Computed example of a mutant assay.
Amino acid sequence: MSSNEEQTFTRLVNEQRAQNNPASTNTVSEAEWHTKLSGKKIVDGQAHSVDTFSKQDLPEKHRVIPPGTLVTMDHHPDRLNVHVDEQGNATHVTFG
């Protein structure tokens, strides 16, 4: 699956989740964050291009998760999890 196909698939899954669970406030936010971050490189400092996104602009409760990283299983519904590829580009987001 190409990167564009994967991004389209993830967007469609997020939209379907939002339709199936309208009571969930995070599902809509998940789709919005996915749209904002998808394919962009997450950087520590200021974002200086349309291809980057600054960690400073993420919600206070967030974590950036590179491939193969072990994460705790504690669930925080308001914590944004930004999953990135080997280059640091956002691939998808979840809350929890």
Rank of each mutant, 00 (worst) to 15 (best):
S3N: 14
N4R: 13
E6R: 15
E6P: 01
Q7P: 03
F9K: 12
R11N: 10
V13P: 02
N14E: 11
E15P: 03
Q16E: 15
R17A: 04
A18G: 03
A18C: 08
N20W: 12
N20Y: 07
N20C: 07
P22L: 00
P22V: 01
S24A: 09
S24W: 01
T27W: 08
T27I: 07
V28G: 11
S29G: 08
A31I: 07
E32G: 04
E32C: 04
E32Y: 05
W33M: 09
H34W: 08
H34C: 00
T35Q: 13
T35P: 01
K36Y: 11
K36V: 05
S38M: 12
G39E: 03
G39L: 07
K40A: 03
K40R: 14
K41F: 04
I42Q: 03
V43K: 08
D44K: 13
D44F: 07
D44M: 04
G45W: 06
G45D: 10
Q46H: 12
Q46W: 10
A47G: 02
V50R: 14
V50M: 09
D51K: 15
D51E: 15
T52C: 01
F53T: 01
F53E: 01
S54A: 13
S54F: 06
Q56H: 14
Q56N: 15
Q56A: 15
D57I: 02
P59R: 04
E60I: 12
E60K: 15
K61R: 13
K61F: 02
K61S: 15
H62C: 02
H62N: 10
R63D: 13
V64W: 06
P66R: 09
P66W: 04
P67S: 05
P67H: 05
P67D: 01
G68C: 06
L70C: 04
L70F: 11
V71C: 08
T72P: 00
T72W: 02
M73V: 09
M73N: 12
H75P: 00
H75Q: 06
H76G: 02
H76D: 12
H76E: 11
P77C: 02
P77H: 07
P77A: 07
R79F: 00
L80G: 00
V82D: 04
H83V: 10
H83K: 11
V84S: 02
E86C: 00
E86F: 04
Q87L: 10
N89V: 04
H92L: 07
F95V: 00
G96Y: 02
